[in-house]
Design a protein around this nucleic acid. Structure first.
Lengths: 386, 386
DNA sequence: TTAAATAATCTTCTTACAAGAAAAATACTG
DNA sequence: CAGTATTTTTCTTGTAAGAAGATTATTTAA
């Protein structure tokens, strides 16, 4: 924290106000942030000088006085590229700095770690090309389904079998722009913060289910990382003593009750006709399959128990459930709710809202973009703003 | 965050360096904090002007050059009073600003909420009088065994049956100095941070057991409060589905397996001769009582499970166990350790140390003082430093 | 046409960090 | 013992940037 810290803090807050509320005026920024008018004025003019934002006269309501000028992120100011690596596919997205999507595509992936740099380099180049924009790429964000520590080392990716890879160095060759890597749960949480349900919420707990169960702790306006940046592994909260075995080697983890493989396995165990993936589970549920409905109902109960622990521990304004949890809302929401009422402390539960993510369904590829945007606008990173 | 924020931040860090390392020199402060020499010099001379710290030439090692001057908190600069309210007793402590204890006493308490202001007023006056110091009282900190929200409202104190009391207003009449109230777990954690095992650790999870089980989340150098300041109720993590009933109304809470009443009840249930309190449990354990040893061993296992969840969620450098957990270290440490090895994620467990508090046994009354000191030196509170 | 109102910018003032020079206080060296 | 080297602290100067108020710009209403 040096003496320009406050300046960067101001610049940042102003940038994000403009990003979130296009055509906002300086006066409105002042109202919303409490910053001094001269601070806002000087930073806004700096931004316009840099070509980062544009002023646009807006047909104001017939009102006396000098009309306010609307501010917006210039579409030509720069691009962000997001990459989401999964077990069998890699998603690419190009956005402009305000987060509006220009292009996206999904490519099948064979899981070869060595080929990653080349694979991403081609993919990124292709999607940037396809975007038709000639703006410079300002940041690349890569989301990975595993443990990524704060040095950018990939500690473990269970579904791909990768361990202890200095992934950040690997990826430096992909682009000249700064590269940011992150865990998929944190990336998804960041997407909710940047573009989704929590744009104005400084504290929320994000929990999602997919091939595993993960999450993130968004506390005091940022993702909490702990000692090594690994915090937020909510899938490995213990929910049952001596419970089911988990891919992490322990037993009784939440992940062993809520992940896609765990649900598939449980349905099979109970004699249901084994679905191929989560979409099939949902189809079965829609069709009224009793076994599947029971499994999802029980999953909701386990989820409710875990969420009640999170509420009691964090007293969060919002708990946000994403991924498959969001898709299965109709089948596990009720039992979760019952568990919450029974188990969460009333003083805290009454002040929390547990909600399901919309981003998870609508545009699940924004995680990478979000960590790129966060990286590029972070207060101590290699950020692009004065 | 205004423009004097950084100044206060600097002043604060310097104050606590001097508090923690008496006779530290300016150069050493510069080395440890990275602040500029002129910043340290100007703040130190401001402090001496205010009479808050003193300079003292120290017989330096025979070394060339101008000798450094040792800095210390002036004993006459002010007093902090800490009050710890429990079910049947209230503890009072007077410290000077560096945290050294001048006097302390414990008074029996009848639990009468209405009489609290008078009771504390007399108690505080008596203990300040007894301290023999004529320095002004700069802050009063009161620790309470229940939920205290960030407004200073007491939401619920189970052991005393108090609910929804605006305790902070009640206590304003006790002294002219600023008054701070807090939950006992947070107060104890703050004591560990100020005076105990975590003086140089910015991130730790504190968990203690007494009449209930509580704790605190010390994250990024401060206690995390959540939406209403209620975060950190670690006693109400769910450890067993449909498990034992808890005083909070839910079931399966950690508190129902680790609190003093829970342990007493379990020993009785298993046919042991019912001990009167935790000290008796320890005596029994020392005497080799099989039932008690088993109960404590099982408690260690449950504790290990909960701590492994905490490690997986927070990736903390330190998990600190206090209160009765610390006292029973010899009887539940081993089973806890086994559970941790089995259940905590290796990548995170290898970077965490789980330790037992020494303060909890040595001087359990420092919680109130710690929240007073924290309040008085907080960056946005009514703090006494320039 | 003038006055009032509103938004944005400009001017002036002040705080406080940053970097370097100077001063203070000691030990070593010849 | 005088002079030099060394180390710590303070002082001086420069600069960034927030805070507050004055000024300018641009509109509607009277």
């Amino acid at each position: 924290m040096d003496r320009s810290y406050l300046r960067r803090y101001h610049a940042n807050a102003i940038f994000h106000r403009i990003r979130l509320i296009p055509l906002i005026s300086q006066r409105e920024i002042i109202e919303q942030t409490g910053f001094d008018k001269s601070v806002v004025s000087s930073i806004v003019s700096k931004f316009t000088e840099m070509g980062l934002i544009e002023r646009q006269s807006k047909p104001d309501a017939n009102r006396r006085g000098r009309p306010s000028e609307g501010l917006l992120i210039s579409p030509a100011s720069g691009l962000l590229v997001g990459v989401e690596i999964e077990a069998d596919a890699v998603g690419f997205v190009v956005c402009s700095l305000d987060g509006s999507i220009l292009t996206s595509k999904i490519e099948p992936f064979d899981g070869d770690l060595g080929g990653i740099p080349q694979f991403l380099k081609r993919g990124v180049a292709a999607v940037v090309e396809a975007s038709g924009s000639s703006a410079p790429v300002l940041g690349l964000g890569v989301s990975l389904p595993g443990l990524v520590n704060s040095d950018g080392t990939l500690v473990h990716v269970p579904v791909l079998g990768w361990r202890d890879v200095d992934i950040l160095s690997h990826l430096q060759s992909v682009t000249d722009a700064p590269v940011f890597v992150g865990n998929d749960g944190k990336a998804a949480a960041m997407a909710e913060r940047m573009f989704g349900a929590c744009t104005d919420i400084d504290d929320f707990i994000y929990l999602f289910s997919g091939s595993g169960v993960g999450g993130a702790l968004f506390l005091d306006g940022k993702i909490y990382g702990g000692a090594d940046g690994l915090a937020g592994e909510l899938g490995h909260i213990k929910v049952v003593p001596q419970g089911r075995f988990c891919s992490c080697g322990a037993s009784g983890c939440l992940s062993a009750y809520l992940s896609e493989p765990a649900l598939l396995h449980e349905i099979e165990r109970l004699g249901g006709k084994a679905p191929a993936d989560f979409s099939c589970i949902l189809e079965g549920a829609e069709g009224g399959d009793e076994i599947i409905l029971n499994v999802l109902d029980h999953a909701g109960e386990v989820l409710g128990s875990a969420v009640s622990s999170l509420i009691n521990v964090f007293n969060p304004p919002v708990v946000l459930l994403g991924g498959n949890l969001s898709r299965a809302k109709a089948y596990l929401g009720a039992s979760m709710q019952r568990a919450l009422i029974r188990l969460a402390h009333p003083a805290m539960y009454s002040r929390s809202t547990v909600q399901f993510s919309k981003i998870s369904e609508g545009m699940p590829l924004l995680g990478g973009v979000a960590i790129a945007l966060d990286g590029v606008t972070s207060l101590d990173g290699p950020h692009v703003f004065k």
